[in-house]
Design a protein around this nucleic acid. Structure first.
Lengths: 151, 151
DNA sequence: GGAAATTAGTTAGCATGGCTAACTATATTG
DNA sequence: CAATATAGTTAGCCATGCTAACTAATTTCC
């Protein structure tokens, strides 16, 4: 694929930025994930739980979609969360095939604590930055989220 | 968010930015990881291989450090890479306990292709952005990398 | 109204990837 | 030279990704 249709030289720059973003994301997550282990809950469980806590009750399929995994994978993740008492299920009246999953009080509490720990170490570094750099990062985060939704 | 952009109230802002960055990184990687599966190599193997390709030969311990995993984990990852013919080992003369691992030509080729695919979908979105936003993202990526090293 | 198709979730089985504990082999130190 | 330290491996645990094949409930359609 060598579309030589460039009137401006955008292609290489876009690729380079994509590459930098990708590796920055990897490095960031690698650093913060060590803190997540303190919760005693696996990363996939933690992430699924956060959907239920911040976005409210969801069906298993919706959760799988949100987390970009297949239903059987989410089925097992949810089983773990229920075993740990962090999530509770209800069979809905309308459609008895569909589950309604929600975080328990314990689940909400655990997630908030984990999030706090996780983000804390990053926040320490952020506080050392000048305000305008911090603001720049905030905007970049929004932009990255937007892009991710488009991909 | 509160429009309380006072200069003295930094703490909550830093936490909020940290949180946004964290979730943006998660969302970004979640989207691009689907492309990585096309390589037929697992994510941990791909990531370790990229260290060898871009940073040059390393010992197993150095690789484990770079990837933030324990030696036994890296031992298995490397075993997989060698089985697939993507990485080769040499016993150093100086210290016969230590391995010297390097990417093979096949490994380098596979990694470049994977990186290209992975970053390509992101680059498509980036090309749609105005130049100054793209530049902003590039700078943010650098900054995030710097921060990650500090954490 | 009931058979067929569709949809939601589960179960089984496989591979990868994280860990600790315990081991081997080599190097260093006392 | 014996004791200790360091580099990697092996064994065995659990979590997390997948597909294929299943059950149960709902919808479609004759």
């Amino acid at each position: 694929m060598e579309p030589d249709k460039g009137k401006q030289i955008r292609e290489p720059e876009a690729l380079a930025v994509a590459d930098r973003l990708h590796s920055a994301a990897i490095h960031l997550l690698r650093r913060v994930r060590t803190r997540d282990r303190e919760s005693g809950v696996g990363p996939a469980q933690l992430s699924a739980l956060s959907v239920l806590v911040f976005a409210g009750p969801r069906s298993l399929g919706e959760l799988a979609m949100a987390e970009q995994v297949r239903p059987p994978t989410m089925s097992r993740i949810v089983a773990g969360l229920m075993r740990a008492g962090l999530v509770r299920r209800q069979v809905t009246r309308e459609d008895r095939r569909r589950l309604r999953l929600e975080a328990t009080a314990k689940g909400t509490q655990l997630l908030q604590a984990a999030r706090q720990r996780r983000v804390e170490s990053l926040a320490v570094s952020l506080r050392a930055l000048p305000t305008e750099k911090r603001e720049q990062l905030r905007q970049a985060a929004e932009l990255i989220d937007q892009l991710s939704r488009q991909i």
